[in-house]
């Protein structure tokens, strides 16, 4: 059974078309990512899935029910962008209060522990740092023991350590059987966490694939940079079928190519007794794939 099914979703605000045509489906236990440039329609899409907005056309079902069905509110956890709390409410009060909204709430103490909020339970929301507010917001989304969690820009505003901790937490949530729908603009986050990604651009699906699949579509260009221990003739390497281009950058050499590039280059250099110092290899990343897929015409 698919957990989330979106078919030909369209939504406009007055004259502005936010979503033109988006379709995807999310399988149980999956971490499904929605990626796209600013204004692509990501947030509108998840808000429709969460039942906060009504689609103009198209069909959305969540856990077998139409999006917006009141019964779903207890089964979906949602973390929205720019959704705050009262400045004067403490972390503990917020967790206790929001727990009481759900028929089968999680243990808020445990959640606070998992999200590193235990030391902040008596702190008022207004005194929390951006990262702490964000973590509280994630905790509130998970309080109801949801079957599906929708997290919009969950690590925006977090420092790198907190971001990594949150990723571990997200993997942990998935291990509990929760299906996750993530909106993100961090490629590293999408690559690390997501099983599949839909790339939305200008209100429509630009691609839907695994992170590796998306990278492959952008071509498998690789870049090697190194400082040779002694000079050599360019032809030595440009003759290789794997090498497409060779550039000199001061004392360093950059080689662009594909296939088994690294192995081919190193073999030739080793044969002639040349040592490649300070060697780096760059492969196509999700970043490159993203730019490739969403490049404006």
């Amino acid at each position: 059974m698919t957990v989330i099914e979106v078919e030909n979703l369209a939504k406009r605000y007055g004259e502005t078309v936010a979503v033109r045509d988006v379709s995807f489906s999310v399988e149980p236990g999956e971490i499904f990512g929605i990626l796209g440039p600013n204004g692509a329609g990501k947030t509108t899409t998840v808000e429709c899935v969460a039942g906060l907005r009504t689609a103009d056309s198209g069909r959305i079902t969540v856990l077998g029910r139409p999006a917006g069905d009141p019964e779903l509110r207890a089964r979906i956890g949602v973390q929205l962008q720019e959704s705050e709390l009262q400045d004067k409410i403490t972390v503990r009060e917020a967790l206790e209060l929001y727990s009481s909204f759900y028929p089968n709430p999680a243990d808020w103490r445990e959640l606070a522990g998992d999200l590193g909020l235990t030391a902040k339970l008596r702190t008022r929301f207004g005194k929390l740092s951006g990262g702490q507010k964000q973590r509280l917001s994630i905790a509130l989304a998970l309080l109801g023991n949801p079957e599906v969690a929708i997290l919009d820009e969950l690590t925006t505003g977090l420092d790198p350590q907190a971001r990594r901790d949150t990723w571990d937490l997200i993997s942990g949530i998935r291990d509990r059987g929760v299906t996750l729908l993530l909106v993100t603009h961090f490629m590293e986050e999408a690559e690390r966490l997501c099983d599949r990604i839909v790339v939305i651009d200008k209100g429509a699906v630009a691609a839907l694939d695994t992170p590796a699949g998306l990278i492959n579509r952008a071509g498998d260009e690789q870049r090697i940079r190194f400082r040779p221990s002694q000079p050599f003739a360019d032809e030595l390497l440009t003759a290789l079928p794997e090498v497409r281009e060779l550039r000199h950058q001061g004392s360093r050499i950059e080689i662009i190519g594909s296939g088994n590039l690294l192995h081919a280059v190193i073999s030739v250099l080793a044969r002639d007794g040349i040592v490649a110092a300070e060697l780096t290899l760059e492969q196509t990343t999700l970043d490159d794939a993203f730019v490739h897929l969403t490049r404006g015409e």
């Binding site: 509110r73 929205l80 720019e82 959704s83 705050e84 709390l85 929001y98 909204f101 109801g144």
Partner: peptide, 16 residues
């Protein structure tokens, strides 16, 4: 302010 800061919206995502 509750509306401006998204507090009402957060409520809309819960059973309450």
């Amino acid at each position: 302010t509750y509306r401006e800061r998204g507090i009402l919206r957060r409520f809309a995502t819960t059973p309450v």
